[in-house]
Amino acid sequence: MSIIVFSENRIGKIKKQSLEAVAYATYISKNNSKPVIAISVGNVNNDELAVLAKYGASKIISITDSNWQNHDSQAYTKLIAEIVEKESADTIIFSHSNMGKAIAPRLSVRLKAGLASNVLALPLSYSPYVFKRKSYNGNAFQQMKIKSQKCVITINPNSCDLVESPVSVNITDFTPTTVANAATKVENIDLITGKILLTEASVVVSGGRGLKSSDNWKPLEELAEVLGAGLACSRPVSDEGWRSHEEHVGQTGKIIAPDLYFAVGISGAIQHIGGISGSKVIVAINKDKDAPIFSYANYGILGDAFDVLPKLIESVKKFKSA
């Protein structure tokens, strides 16, 4: 028996969320001694793949065939199912990312393997597996037991510490018997480059209606830059068209779980909290002392964003240069 991790990359670089998934698998492996095998699809060089070994993957199955670059969930499901059988895996781990969400449920049906999605912590029990997962938009947690022999898991960002447990690694190029016969054809890919991905960022700076208009984003952008943070906004801001809906975090927008979240001029409607409740630390900057955001935040500054931001930027600069 083995544990399989589906590793994702972005333009050849393995995503932090995938490293977390490997670290998660390694924790399980320490408990039940099953080896951790990572699957990588796409053009990732061996040096980069070796990073997976740093977190405990002893075998890496790499599929570099360009026919397999289409991200077609139906085809990928068949591919992974083939490897699951070959490696007699019983635990298959994905990130709770767009790709994980697209493939894991299909695989669950194909393998008749119970799905534990949106998992927030290490298993509470290993035989049978019991997981703690997010439900009701973070207003509750569900503990669920896997009753099937196999199990598919998608884990949330920040659900497990990135602890290194280096092992020697065996990287195999794999040519699947499954044909990459995709019903979906990718016509175009539009990548936003040079920006820090919200779903990957460990620090996120987010602005709300309190910033008053699209012209006032400069100081927030500057704060994001000095922090090396992702830039986000609340729903009213994207609804007003001040910022692109790509940046909208909240229940209906992106759901994120950074280490540190700055909510600037965001009142903290429950729908917004639904998208950020996984954050480790929330900082609220708001001039309304009654804003609900303060009851979710760990640290707060009562003040006008336009006064506070320049000072905060200076403080960060001072800290970074120290």
Binding site: S108, K112, A113, G114, L115, A116, V130, K132, S135, G138, N139, A140, F141, Q142, Q143, M144, K145, I146, K147, S148, S277, A284, F294, S295, Y296, A297, N298, Y299, G300, I301, L302, G303, D304, D307, V308, K311, L312, E314, S315, K318
Partner: peptide, 25 residues
């Protein structure tokens, strides 16, 4: 394939620690 064993509510959070607007350091 699965079964819910129990639900939990999030633990109540400690109060927000306020920092003076002048003292961003």
């Amino acid at each position: 394939l699965i079964e819910t064993t129990i639900f939990e509510l999030p633990a109540s959070k400690a109060a927000c620690k306020m920092v003076d607007a002048e003292d961003t350091d």
